[in-house]
Design a protein around this nucleic acid. Structure first.
Lengths: 119, 119
DNA sequence: AGGGAATATTCCTGTCAAGGAATATTAGGG
DNA sequence: CCCTAATATTCCTTGACAGGAATATTCCCT
């Protein structure tokens, strides 16, 4: 249970995850894939994007380990991989003390380092 | 309790959150602030960054609603805001079916739309 | 008021990534 | 084996953004 608070232990997982999701179209793709695997064309159609850009975004998502592809005949079917979301979940939980408002009063701490700072 | 699974309802919160955290130095700043509020100089010192860049990053984080500043004399003390982490947590949980492997078998679904696609 | 510390801002430059358009690749079907 | 659909890749241009350096600002203190 205490595991969430030992945030020193939390893996500094692939930073790429963040930049991969920072691109709005890629985030949309990911949210689309949440409901199930899709082909490139299908994604392009639903999001109103052109096929090459979708391919490129999927490439980025794939490189960051966010999605997985498995070919089926002519098509390539993309689906989400669970790993990054697990890691994200861990990371977010390392902030639990923040969102639970348990670090509200830090003024003592601040006085501390401001004294140490007067070197 | 079911709230985590109704991902249609989840707010498409500020997309800025992602790009704000995509910058490695900003992510480090956030992870640093997890342990408590800090001044600009303190952050700069600990991360080995120059003060102006830290100020700029804090500006970005502030604009995205990730951090909050309250002045104290000469200094400005930055601390994390809980809101974005709550939202991120919700978002991540909307992928719970993924990481729990409950969407493994989607092949039927795929056959579905590939038929529909033959227009 | 003036000086200095802490912080913010501006300007500049280089880099990187996204979209558009065209083209290459791959795989099935006749 | 060619044709076509589905997908990937390349080249190009453009915009956003990060860092460096210098400067502006803010605020306390005497």
């Amino acid at each position: 249970m205490l595991v969430y608070f030992i945030h020193k232990e939390i893996r500094l997982y692939e930073r790429e995850t963040w930049s991969a999701l920072a691109e709005p179209n890629r985030l949309q793709i990911v949210e689309l894939l949440r409901d199930g695997a899709l082909t490139v064309d299908e994604i392009a159609k639903r999001l109103g994007l052109r096929q090459p850009q979708v391919s490129k975004h999927l490439r980025a998502l794939s490189d960051s380990g966010l999605v997985e592809v498995h070919p089926s005949a002519n098509r390539r079917i993309y689906k989400l991989l669970p790993q990054p979301y697990l890691e994200l979940n861990d990371w977010i939980h390392s902030f639990q003390t923040i969102w639970e408002g348990r670090l509200e009063r830090l003024d003592d701490y601040l006085c501390d380092f401001s004294k140490k700072n007067n070197s």
